[in-house]
């Protein structure tokens, strides 16, 4: 006989001892690690991941400006 575990919503995420929640946490970590490494991440229908990806692309897109650090006289 198999027992089906009920999935807890993220807002009840508490201690790190629930296998389902732990798997979700690790999955999120892997996705964010991919974004942090600038690797292509499949966002699918996840709007939050897609927007974070767009923010990363936008931040990386523009060349660093030639800011002069010579003190003005």
């Amino acid at each position: 006989m198999t027992t089906k575990r009920r999935r807890r919503p993220a807002r009840f995420l508490g201690s790190y001892d629930d296998a389902d929640v732990e798997a979700d946490v690790l999955r999120t970590d892997a996705i964010l690690d991919g974004l942090a490494r600038r690797e292509p991440v499949a966002s699918g229908a996840d709007a939050a991941i897609r927007m974070l990806g767009a923010l990363v692309a936008d931040v990386e897109s523009q060349r660093l400006s030639s800011v002069s650090i010579t003190p003005s006289t």
Partner: peptide
């Protein structure tokens, strides 16, 4: 470990807002 849990919550909140 606390970072991993907190980032999971933050992403869930971001999703909810979106």
């Amino acid at each position: 470990g606390a970072v991993r849990v907190a980032q999971h919550r933050a992403l869930a909140r971001l999703r909810q807002l979106a």
